[in-house]
Computed example of a mutant assay.
Amino acid sequence: MPRLDQLLSSLGYGSRKQVADIVKAGRVRSGDLILKKPDQKVEAADVTLDGAALEAPYGLLAMLHKPLGHVCTHSDGEGPTIYELLPAQWMARKPAVTSIGRLDKNTSGLILITDLGPLVHRYTSPKAEVEKIYEVTVDRELDPALIATFASGGVMLRGEEKPCLPAKLEITSPLTASLTLMEGRYHQVRRMFASQGWHVEKLHRSRFGDYTLGNLAPGEWQMLELPADPA
């Protein structure tokens, strides 16, 4: 079991000194018992602060609807970041939250947010083959022959030595399609269409693994249950 001050600090409630002051003020309980020693061992699930359960004490997983114009980076200078849309306390967690599966500035859609390294690896490892669905709008009428081309597993991207894995393309209108991928190369959707002579005008990710956006509005986030085995 963790020390109380280490637990609260790791969840973003303040520095070790700040959370020690919180404890000494009698604001932290385990059940009906007021906890008075910052260094005492506790079970995270039993601890409350100001009467509320601790937020995601065993690790955080959330889904964000990334709007256009935001970047998936912690660095300044590239424009507004997705982390500005999230609670400030999450940035103070140790480790701080990060995104799973980046989207570029001109792409909207589903991003997973977590502070659990094993989850990042699970979903981004080249061997993971996590299903992702993208809604695509292109600059000219789509050719039905693209369905077989993308499904062939033979599409080559400029500068790469291995072809893309087979992908499922569903043409939904003359200029729109849904593309299902099992990998996540750099700007893959845009590059796949470009390799066949089409320019992607709009791009939106509607699904990532088992998760879909549903009615989640752009800029909004939603907490998710942790997988049974985050590792």
Rank of each mutant, 00 (worst) to 15 (best):
G117R: 14
Q196M: 14
V138N: 05
E161Y: 09
V136W: 09
I147M: 12
G14K: 09
S15L: 08
K41H: 01
P144T: 12
S30E: 15
Q40R: 09
A217M: 10
L8C: 12
L11M: 08
T172G: 00
I100V: 13
E129C: 04
E141M: 07
D104R: 11
L181G: 03
A148E: 12
L49W: 04
V42M: 00
R158T: 11
F193T: 09
A128K: 13
S9Y: 10
G101D: 15
T176D: 09
I100L: 03
Y134I: 02
Y123L: 15
E84P: 05
G69V: 06
P80F: 08
Q40D: 11
V71Q: 02
P80V: 13
R122I: 06
K105L: 15
T114W: 15
W221L: 06
R190D: 04
G51P: 02
P57Y: 11
V97Q: 08
S30F: 03
S10Y: 01
R140M: 12
T73H: 13
V47E: 05
G26T: 12
T172K: 01
P163G: 05
S173I: 13
A88C: 02
K168F: 07
A217E: 14
R102C: 03
A217W: 00
F150W: 00
L224R: 05
T137Y: 00
L116H: 10
G101F: 12
C164M: 11
A25D: 14
T172R: 05
L64M: 08
T137A: 10
